[in-house]
Structure formats: structure tokens, C-alpha cells
Amino acid sequence: MRRKLHRTPLLTLLAAGLLAITGAMTPSGAHGPSRQKITLTTEVPASPADVWAVIGNFQDMSWHPAVFSTTGEGGNNIDATRVVTLGKEGGPTISEVLYKYSAEKMSYSYRITDVKVEVLPVTNYSSHLTVKPGKDGGSLIEWRGAFYRGYPNNDPPENLNDEAAIAAVSAVYQAGLDALSERFAKK
């Protein structure tokens, strides 16, 4: 008498084992950093055209109090570059590239191509700066960004974790928006 093998339970067992093994090796089994997003805004009592005249030139960040100088190439054309020097001559730098620009929509988008995490604790950073009509002929200035923390692996040090990245980018945006609020305050 020949015995008939029951393949179904064996195949089920093999499939479950393979699933358990491969599941442990897939990204869903690991936990890494999440992309962070922030948006800060401020309203100023100046026309959008007046505000855009100050912030709309990608090559000029003199309106931001942390910026010592900005140098670059390409004007406001896509793929234009700039190097922002912070604080003082010879201070830390951030290199950026423009990837969207619309004078009509009063908006531009850029990404960081080079920065030390000691200067800004982020990686894979992109940002958008926009001026929109606000209340009573004023303007709404919106600065938003998306980025990963400065330490891409698990268990980041405190100075390179998500909270540090969010705090640093928020501080940069808030300082710029505060300077613009002060500049355009009704006198």
C-alpha cells in the first residue's frame, strides 16, 4: 500500500516560515527616520508685490537676520545655485539649488545640496517660500519645509534627532518671518 502525501500542510508550513524570515528582513520590520514637515506663516500690512520685491530674489537673503552674505549663479532660473554664509564673514555655509520659481505666483522652491549637520541638523531638506494676498491689502508669507533628521540611523543622538531638526528649521523660519514682520510693520 502506497501512502499519499498531504502536500498542503507542508506547503503552508514552508510558506509561513519563508514569510516570517523575509518579513524580518524587509523595511517594514525596521524603523528609521520619518520625513518631517513644518509650515510657518506671518501676516504683514504690506502688499504682496512689496514683500515679493524683498524676498523674491533667490540670490539675495539679506532680509534674514542670520545671513551674513549670499553668493550664487543663475539668478532665479531653475537649477540656479546659492551659498548662504551665516553669522559673519567666514561663518558656516549652506549650499542650495533652486528647483521651482514663479514670479507670477510669488513662490519659489529650493533644496539644500550641502550643509554640515552641526550647522543645521537635517538631511534631504527642501523648502518653499510663498507670498499670498492677506487681509486688508496685506500679505501672508508662508515658509514650509520637509526634511529628515540629521542622523539617518536608529537611535540618533539628541542633537541630531527629529525634535532637534524640527526646532532648528522652525527657528530659522521664525527668525526670517519675524524680521519681515518688523520690516513691514505699520509705522
Rank of each mutant, 00 (worst) to 15 (best):
N124D: 12
P121W: 00
T113P: 13
S107E: 14
P92G: 04
S102K: 07
R111F: 15
V119R: 03
R111L: 11
T123E: 07
T70C: 10
E118W: 01
V84Y: 01
K116N: 13
F68S: 05
T93N: 04
V117W: 00
G72F: 00
H64P: 06
T71E: 11
S102Y: 04
V84A: 03
P65F: 00
V84T: 09
G87W: 00
K88L: 13
A66Q: 12
N124S: 13
V83F: 06
S69V: 12
T123D: 05
E89K: 14
Y110G: 06
K100Q: 11
K100M: 11
I78T: 15
Y110I: 12
N124C: 11
P92H: 04
E118S: 12
D79H: 11
T113Q: 03
A80Y: 01
E73Y: 07
M106F: 09
S95R: 04
R111H: 13
G75H: 10
T70P: 13
T113F: 02
V97K: 10
T81M: 01
T85W: 00
N124T: 11
A80H: 07
Y108I: 10
I112A: 04
T93C: 03
P92E: 12
T113D: 05
V83N: 05
E104Y: 04
S95K: 08
K116T: 14
N124L: 12
I78N: 10
S95D: 13
G87I: 09
A66H: 03
K88T: 14
V122G: 04
T71I: 15
T123S: 07
G72Y: 02
M106L: 10
L86C: 02
D79K: 12
T81H: 06
Y110T: 12
H64N: 05
G91I: 13
K100A: 08
A80F: 09
N76S: 04
T81V: 10
L98P: 02
K88R: 14
N77F: 13
G75Y: 06
S102C: 01
G74F: 03
T123W: 05
R82Q: 05
E118K: 02
L98V: 07
D114V: 01
T123F: 05
N124E: 10
E118G: 06
E89L: 10
E104A: 10
S69M: 07
S102P: 10
P92K: 09
T85N: 03
P92T: 11
H64M: 04
S95E: 07
I78V: 15
R111T: 13
P121R: 01
F68K: 10
I78C: 05
M106K: 15
P121L: 01
V67Q: 02
N124I: 04
S109A: 15
E89H: 08
T93L: 08
P65E: 00
G90Y: 08
T93F: 03
K105E: 15
T113M: 00
S95T: 10
L120Y: 00
V84F: 09
G72Q: 00
G74S: 02
Y108P: 08
V122A: 07
I112D: 00
P65L: 01
E89Q: 15
T71Y: 10
G74P: 06
